[in-house]
Design a binder for these strands. Structure first.
Length: 555
RNA sequence: GCGCUGUUAGCUCAACUGGAUAGAGCGUUGGUCUACGGAACCAAAGGCUAGGGAUUCGAAUUCCUUACGGCGCACCA
């Protein structure tokens, strides 16, 4: 039942659409409201008068039980028993699918996220793109889209020549086998600190060797790549992140020439200071560099090739790039170039920009050792979760497993709770806080709900015509809002809406839980409260799962 | 210098896209344990929404302007 639509239809007044129906600031006023101020001009009457008139001509029915006119607002109260019955029946029927839909209709959405750089371990700055993209992936799937997760590997560039050079000079097999990605990264950092002119020249030569197919250089590169992927797979598994393609920059090395040719054909390519550019001056932007003066391709060249390849391969409805706002200009430029090339699908490319992560004492710097590794954050959170479980509930079985679920949840949730555009100053105090607006709070609420259901033992059956009290009804209204929340999150590329929703629902459930006894209630009240508990639990689980966070039965 | 972006309670953030008394969490103070799980709940204190103008019946939200941050501005990605 769409209440806004129902109300608008019943009002049957010129200029009133379902979108005009608003939500009052508090529920004592009503569940829906129509501000009548805009109508004042149309009808040439005061808003107060209009509200009064609409009120007297509105007949209540089995959906809307009460109408009142207050200060130019027309307030509606819904039939509580009707809404409760509708929502709880729906959740019971749909279960893990509650909140999902078919709006995607099988259309394809490509999501480019996380994008690992070979030989670079994940630090805390990689968390946002990884979990944001991972969550959008789940959200779009939930809405019936066909989703392609793409890890656009950073596996191309002169830095790999440097890496091989550093390895040949200072590295050895045992050390790298043992130290994995961190050992490789250390070699790269050392190169940047110590390399002289001669080593720089050697590095360029090694990069050329990779390009030309030299066996030794490629074997080394592939080895580094494998170590990197082994490392990130472990983290992806913990964070519940999946990809359908690992086509990275190197994959496009033979797909750029056609794009360059097309740019030439369409007279978009210009020579400037020895380089080849697309002039974007008329659009108020600096030029987009396509070829360096030495003829080498650039970031934008590969992105043009990649976008074209993705369109041809997946025929996407939308292609999202989950990349920090640092690169706003780059995306604006390359989207514009595609538009100038006459690709009508350029409008379907979306840069999902998010804020920067810094440390309390400033920007991160791998070189100066000022860096927080993601794996350390994860293990500290899991350890803390284990310690708290030990303290509060030491008799639990599978404590390690539960600590994983709780600790990882805290890491993910911390990255997804706020608007993505906000900058984040990383602090251990904050991720390790398990109280208040956190995933742990939601999980704890679920554990309580679970415990009630287990203790009741009885099969949950929804009583007919039960009139919910205030606390019960707040939960019902929150439950009813979930499907729309998922749609909003997808439309705005904003998983934080779901994270906030989960906390809001948990808060409302907790208030209900404190005020209304469940197991000692009698008759319909008991049945209703058990049904409400079951539905609230299901919905909290569904919400968290869209973020990649699990819910333990006990904790 | 130009462009983009941000500024809301002591701190971290919301505010359904222009609506009613700007809400949460943390922190502070004071309560709730004869317990359906205290990782919880209740209450209090805390705000001229950075400053100034404009539009509107109505502005944290739109426009202009100033200040202070962040990011970006040609051969890195």
């Amino acid at each position: 039942m769409d209440y806004r639509e129902h109300i608008a239809k019943k009002l049957n007044t010129e200029g009133v659409t379902p979108a005009d129906i608003a939500l009052p600031p508090n529920s004592e006023m009503g569940d829906y409201a129509l501000p009548c101020f805009k109508l004042a001009k149309v009808f040439r009457k005061s808003p107060v008068q209009i509200a009064e008139e609409l009120k007297s001509s509105f007949t209540v029915d089995e959906v809307i039980s009460e109408v009142s006119a207050v200060n130019g607002y027309l307030n509606f109260k819904v039939n509580k028993a009707g809404l409760a019955n509708e929502v709880l029946t729906q959740i019971e029927g749909e279960g893990t699918g509650y909140g999902s839909s078919k709006v995607g209709n099988g259309k394809t959405v490509c999501i480019d996220y996380s994008s690992v750089n070979i030989a670079k371990p994940f630090h805390i700055g990689h968390l946002s793109t990884t979990v944001l993209g991972g969550s959008l992936y789940k959200i779009y799937k939930f809405l019936g889209y066909n989703v392609v997760g793409i890890n656009h590997l950073g596996d191309y560039g002169t830095q790999f020549g440097k890496l091989i050079c550093a390895y040949k000079k200072w590295g050895n097999k045992e050390e790298v086998e043992k130290g994995g990605i961190h050992a490789i990264n250390a070699l790269y950092v050392r190169f940047n600190d110590e390399a002289d002119e001669q080593m720089e020249a050697e590095a360029r030569e090694y990069f050329r060797l990779i390009e030309s197919g030299d066996k030794e250089a490629n074997d080394l590169f592939e080895w580094f790549k494998k170590l990197t992927l082994d490392y990130v797979q472990k983290i992806y598994k913990k964070l519940d992140i999946t990809f359908d393609s690992y086509a990275g920059e190197r994959f496009y090395s033979d797909k750029m020439q056609p794009v360059i040719d097309e740019l030439k054909e369409k007279n978009l390519l210009k020579e400037s200071e020895g380089a080849s550019i697309v002039d974007l001056e008329p659009y108020g932007m600096p030029p987009c560099l396509i070829l360096r003066s030495d003829g080498a391709t650039l970031y934008a060249t590969r992105d043009l090739a990649a976008a074209t390849y993705r369109k041809n391969t997946y025929d996407f409805y939308k292609c999202l790039y989950v990349v920090a706002y640092q690169q706003n200009l780059h995306f604006k430029q390359f989207f514009k170039v595609l538009e100038l090339m006459g690709k009508e699908w350029a409008k379907d490319l979306v840069h999902v920009a998010y804020g920067m992560v810094s440390l309390e004492d400033g920007a991160m710097s791998t070189r100066r050792g000022k860096v927080v590794w993601l794996e350390d954050v994860i293990s500290k959170c899991v350890e803390k979760a284990y310690a708290v479980i030990n303290e509060k509930n030491s008799a639990l079985e599978n404590k390690e497993e539960i600590a994983q679920t709780v600790g990882l949840g805290a890491v993910i949730f911390g990255a997804l709770y706020n608007n993505k555009i906000k900058d984040i100053v990383f602090s251990y105090d904050k991720v390790l806080s398990f109280e208040g607006e956190t995933s742990v709070y939601v999980q704890y609420t679920c554990a309580r709900a679970n415990s009630v259901l287990t203790k009741s033992g009885a099969e949950v059956k929804l009583p007919k015509g039960y009139e919910p009290n205030a606390q019960e009804f707040e939960v019902i209204k929150a439950l009813a809002a979930f499907p729309q929340t998922v749609l909003d999150a997808a439309e705005k590329y904003e998983p934080s809406l779901i994270a906030r929703y989960a906390v809001d629902l948990a808060q409302k459930y907790n208030k209900f839980y404190i005020d209304c006894k469940i197991l000692t209630a009698e008759g319909d009240a008991k049945d209703f409260r058990l049904a409400l508990t079951k539905s609230a639990l299901q919905t909290m689980k569904n919400a968290l799962s869209l973020l990649g966070i699990g819910v333990p039965e006990k904790m």
